[in-house]
Amino acid sequence: MKKNMIFKGLILGVLFFLGTSNIFAQEINGTSNESINNYDQKFRLGFGLNAGPAIGDYFNLALGGDVRLQYDLTQRTSLTLTTGYTHLFSEEDYIDDLGYIPVKAGFKAFVLEDNFYVLGEVGAGFAVTNDYNETTFIWAPGVGYANEYIDLSVRYEGMNDFKTDQVALRLAYGFKL
């Protein structure tokens, strides 16, 4: 348990360092703060598929889909709202699979070039399968690559009350609204 908490703290620390190292620079790739302040804010919408291993005692695989609404604050920072459905597959016959709907809000910051970013999200996961009647706190740091239409990322998603976590690879298609 102590190793798990150290691992989570290390991930958050690295993501925080990466996220803040280039955001506050005076000039970003030849773009002055004046042109960033005059940026035309906009919404983006993305549809993603998620897959990866579940880390814990009861589940071994997680598959899901999501919808992410993103509001660009500047050219390099955005607020996000993500929901969808994730299915955790049980590794034991005596434990049922778990399906849940995550609802997360987050902050996304591009840190390298215009394509690489870090993302941190927090929210809740609502169990929707018959045998589970729980809601859990979710926290999800991640890193990714995005261009105008494609978003490829990997994230760690911690779920306290479901007694499992996951590492998910996300492939998404996004567009401006």
Rank of each mutant, 00 (worst) to 15 (best):
D40N: 14
G56D: 02
Y39R: 05
I23F: 14
L45N: 10
V67K: 03
L12T: 04
A62K: 06
F59P: 02
N38Q: 14
L61K: 07
N22M: 10
N22W: 07
N33D: 12
G13M: 05
Y39C: 03
I11R: 02
G13P: 01
F24G: 12
P53L: 06
Q26I: 06
G19E: 04
G19S: 06
I23V: 13
Q41V: 00
N50T: 06
N37I: 11
S35N: 11
G56W: 00
S21T: 15
V14I: 15
T20V: 11
R68E: 15
R68T: 15
T31D: 14
F43I: 05
T31R: 14
A54P: 05
N22E: 14
N22I: 08
I55W: 02
L69F: 12
G52E: 09
R68Y: 01
G30Q: 05
N29L: 12
D40F: 01
S35R: 13
Y71D: 05
G65F: 09
N50G: 05
G48M: 09
F43Q: 04
G52H: 04
T20I: 11
N33S: 12
S32M: 01
A62M: 00
S35H: 06
N38Y: 04
A62R: 01
S32Y: 04
V67W: 03
Y58L: 10
N50P: 00
F43Y: 12
F47D: 00
I11N: 02
G13H: 00
A25V: 03
L12Q: 01
G9T: 05
F43P: 00
S35L: 10
L12I: 12
N22R: 13
S32N: 14
A62D: 02
G9M: 08
R44A: 11
Q41T: 11
G65S: 08
G13Y: 07
D40E: 13
N22V: 11
L18K: 08
N37V: 10
G56L: 03
L12S: 05
I23G: 09
L45K: 08
N29V: 06
E34W: 08
I36H: 03
N22L: 07
I28R: 15
F59E: 03
G48V: 01
L18S: 10
I36M: 10
G30T: 07
G46R: 01
Q70M: 07
F59N: 07
L10Y: 02
F17A: 15
Q26M: 09
L45A: 11
I28T: 13
G65H: 04
V67Y: 09
V67M: 11
L12H: 04
P53Q: 05
L10E: 01
N33W: 11
Y58K: 12
Y58F: 09
Q26V: 05
N50H: 06
L10F: 14
Q70Y: 01
P53T: 09
F47M: 09
F24A: 13
E34P: 01
